[in-house]
């Protein structure tokens, strides 16, 4: 690793340690405000990411003009700061039944209560997606698929601080190609986020514009026949959430693989769009979702 990269990683690591110290020392409400302020600072400092976010918000049509888009973008940056604190202090939320209002349709509830049935739960970078995974782990073990962070020191720190319960993160890439299938066969929940640019994904409209979309969730449903649903965990008030699971999304195979996958992804993107339109300031807008083919 190049020397300058090692220095940057070390600086990032100590910045993260400092952030965690603040989170640990402050009471939850103050820690949330502090993290929100840091999010706002990040919005001001990271010009390239800010431009991407404003462009995305305008393209999605959730803001009518650049000023409104900037306001949404800044609020969303504050939100992402508080997501970090809420995830680190999740026990306060998860142990208090008044902090999470839950809506689970009967068909999904039946799957959750059947120890032999695996479940594919899909979400996006909306609300507090990690809390959703942690809350659902009271029914079955939950494996959340994640891409490793670029900074291995920060990655190790983050993993050491994540509450365990029945929730664990598993890497996106692994030499064992059958591990997702095994996990679902063992009756576990596989949690995936489907709103990141997927270089080898399928072009599916997201807010009306084609976006390369990950096909794993849809393919797992089609091949393993494991039930599939969509989840959102929106912040209703500080440290208070509404966890909503959709009814099961089912697709009978037509024999046309791409058509089947596209139909499922359209349904999933539609549900995510609906959640974002309601609370655009709870979405991670800084990701380049509509990348051009060559990027």
């Amino acid at each position: 690793m190049a020397f300058h990269l090692r220095v940057i990683h070390l600086l990032e690591y100590w910045a993260a340690r400092l952030l965690l110290l603040g989170v640990d020392l402050l009471p939850p409400a103050a820690a949330s405000r502090w993290a929100g302020w840091l999010g706002s600072l990040w919005w001001t400092a990271d010009r390239p990411r800010r431009r991407v976010a404003i462009s995305n918000i305008l393209r999605a049509g959730v803001a009518g003009d650049p000023a409104a888009a900037r306001a949404i973008g800044r609020a969303a940056a504050r939100h992402m700061g508080t997501v970090l604190v809420e995830s680190l202090k999740s026990a306060l939320v998860l142990d208090d039944p008044d902090r999470v209002r839950v809506r689970i349709p009967d068909d999904v509830q039946a799957v959750l209560e059947d120890p032999d049935q695996g479940l594919i739960v899909v979400s996006g970078h909306f609300g507090n997606w990690e809390l959703a995974g942690q809350w659902l782990s009271r029914y079955k073990p939950v494996a959340g698929i994640s891409r490793p962070m670029n900074n291995p020191r920060v990655q190790e720190l983050a993993l050491s601080r994540r509450p365990r319960h029945g929730f664990r993160m598993i890497p996106k890439y692994d030499p064992d190609p059958g591990r997702f299938i095994k996990l679902l066969g063992d009756g576990e929940i596989l949690a995936l986020l489907v709103d990141q640019h997927a270089r080898q994904g399928l072009d599916v409209p997201f807010f009306g514009h084609p976006a390369k979309t990950h096909t794993t969730a849809a393919m797992l449903h089609l091949v393993t026949r494991a039930p599939l649903c969509f989840a959102t965990c929106r912040r209703a008030a500080p440290m208070t959430f509404e966890l909503t699971l959709s009814p099961l999304i089912e697709r009978q195979r037509s024999g046309e693989r791409n058509a089947d996958v596209e139909a499922i992804l359209l349904a999933l993107n539609g549900l995510l769009e609906e959640a974002i339109r309601r609370d655009p300031d709870q979405y991670l807008w800084g990701h380049r979702r509509w990348r051009r083919r060559t990027e």
Partner: peptide, 15 residues
């Protein structure tokens, strides 16, 4: 195969 391409193959084998 990786965890995604194995799914494509399984779907196509079954079909």
């Amino acid at each position: 195969f990786d965890s995604l391409t194995i799914l494509d193959v399984l779907y196509d084998v079954e079909e």
